[in-house]
Design a protein around this nucleic acid. Structure first.
Lengths: 231, 231, 231, 231
DNA sequence: TATGAATGAGTGTTCATTCAT
DNA sequence: TATGAATGAACACTCATTCAT
């Protein structure tokens, strides 16, 4: 087990500038008030922490590395988070919430149920599978047992909501005659299972055998809704 | 985050006895040769290590706790394993191999493909889901990225084999007309996905909402093979 | 070992008001000039620092707590003191000097030597024993070895002067026949010893066993001057 | 404030040898069993810790320095003590108890009360004043408020016992007519005050003005018992 | 002048690994 | 072979001090 902060996608210094610049076209830090700066720093810490936690897991991540990657001093982390544990917990919340928000902002329920589900899957594909957010899911699976509060939060905010939404869709599909298998409504997990598998696969086995997640999800939907005649 | 070695499957007391005996009968090791004793110790260490690694993850597990749980001295571990990392790696091999062996020892290919798959699923249910072995799968998902060699091993010995076997079954099912959906053969992952989800669910969310894995798998097979006429 | 700033004599709220006011009345500082304000701030810092140093000792005291208690920002302390060490040193001077001044302002040398000594003891009782100043003495005893300059200062300004004054009184008492024991003049420490013990006792053991310092000092003086016939 | 481990009276290496040698005249470590070695190490740690705590106080003492001075690794300290605080507390107990034992082993109560008191004072002079033990008393005065358990222990084991013993002696003296001042029995502190002052003086002001503690105590006893006719 | 966010050296504590017994 | 005391590198967290505002 080597111990390098791993390649930072964006070097700290560069990123500070990037952030500052993103506000104004100047070189100075004109438009950023005290509060803004603080928020930026916090965001930088959250980003860095996510990278490191994903790469090494909670216990093996060093705050030193997070600080270095975020381009702040070690002490600065403690201005934003009580300790390593609560940083991890808040981090998960911070990152998960907007994803959930975006995913649950379903497109207008026009068209067939299959269209709805496909829209959702497409969103999921873009927003989660193969992204940092996907890795975060794997991280939660990994650390869940040691962070009951995280597992609870994840179950409450993501899993149970997702299950409910899926069940609603399935029932709609059954009512409309798009789905034959009535029992499916009891196990919405079946509907999402391949998507979850895709997430984990990309994290673990992408380099052994790439997986065309989009196509796989299509095949799975064919299984549930019947193969599309045209397409 | 608490820090207790958790209930030891084999109480340390056992070890006290062992000691006492070796003392009483001079040097004699009645029913077990030197080599056997060594193998027993190694097995005890492997068991203890698995418990601890599953409960805390690699980085957070203390060798002290493993030793205590195994009923050996800390130094003894180093007589069997080079270091913590290789212990983890060997441990995974040691535990995974017999499971794979047992799972791949499929019953004679009599009967329908669905029967074959169901036999397999039933085995998997009994041997993996909700067991220590299931937790081990979660552990591999968790630690995989930090242990490429483990991920490699797991992919080679379990995943790729499993995928191949599933693909063969699917193709057989298609050939025999039991499975309609031809594309399924491209993504055997779909066949296993609910089983994997069940494994993870039991590890993480069983206490939030219990999952009847067996029934879920049945529904899933209905989806693939069509609902059973009689049941 | 707990870590609470302890009850602040002057609540931080005071400071909020101060701020609010300075805001309301533009820049005006009604009843106190700039310089006065600065002096007040300095005094607040000294008071707060004394409380904290007495409660925790030099090393364990946090400037943060001093600032909070004084109702100023941490940086403000550095406008008045070079660093923590010199703050401690100046603090001792600042607090000690007026006490010495008041104590040495002996009442007119009328009456017997015993009356003089009693007046002095009475003063000491009121000004030192069981007060913050008494705790400061204990603090000096505690930190003396690590702050030679403080020990030096204390010896020079308090101890040696006190010893001289006591010796003078003793010699006067011997000359006037009030004190029998001639050798006492060699060890004026004996005269003050019970007073010092009282100071320390109140700091450390008051809650185990209260001590009537006044009565003890009276008994001690009886020992030196002989018991009072009347009274 | 400089930060040097201060001069170790006996350098670590030398001392380990000395200890080992004290057992046999050889160079090896023949006579020291595992347990003996452990006890020696613990003693070395206690000694080193006492030096450092006395020199710097609790908070400012670094475990690194204690370890270095004791000639052990930092981790070794934690084999003997739970943490810094309990090390300090146990240290005080460890050092105080034998002193109390020796001091309370009074010589046979033959002769006058004054003889008894003088014997006691002489013991105290030899065992405490101007020794490490004396410094320890100052340390307790210094840290008492932050270590209630230490203050409690000290009060219980040393102060209250000492006060009782002194009171008994005083009452005996009064009964035998050696002591005139009856009230003295209410304040045995007066009897010990100069001894305590001597302890503190040696710690703080010895270099400013040396104090002949023995002579001072003699003068003080003269005050209480009357001057000795012959001397 | 006053602030308090930011810094980073410093320290108590843990724990994988070694090795004398 | 087995032990567990000893080691010391590593790491989370603190806090005196600085400095942009």
């Amino acid at each position: 087990m080597t111990r390098k902060p791993a390649k930072a996608a964006t070097p700290p210094a560069a990123r500070a500038n990037a952030k500052a610049n993103s506000h104004a076209g100047e070189d100075a830090v004109p438009a950023s008030s005290r509060a803004t700066r603080a928020a930026e720093r916090r965001a930088a810490i959250v980003d860095a922490a996510m990278e490191e936690f994903i790469a090494r897991g909670f216990a093996a991540t060093r705050l030193d590395d997070i600080a270095k990657r975020a381009g702040v001093a070690k002490g600065t982390i403690y201005l934003h988070f009580k300790d390593k544990e609560s940083m991890f917990e808040e981090l998960v919340r911070t990152v998960i919430v907007p994803v959930v928000t975006r995913l649950t902002a379903l497109p207008p329920p026009a068209g067939s149920v299959r269209d709805l589900v496909e829209a959702f899957a497409s969103n999921f594909l873009k927003e989660v599978i193969g992204t940092r957010r996907g890795d975060l899911v794997r991280l939660i699976v990994a650390e869940g047992p040691r962070f009951p509060s995280v597992a609870d939060f994840y179950y409450r905010e993501v899993v149970s909501r997702g299950i409910s939404a899926m069940r609603a869709l399935i029932e709609l599909g059954i009512a409309r005659g798009e789905i034959r298998q009535k029992n499916l409504a009891h196990y919405p997990q079946i509907l999402v299972a391949p998507a979850m598998i895709a997430v984990i696969w990309q994290s673990l086995f992408a380099r052994h055998a790439p997986l065309d997640a989009q196509d796989m999800l299509r095949v799975h939907l064919d299984l549930i809704f019947g193969e599309r005649s045209t397409t």
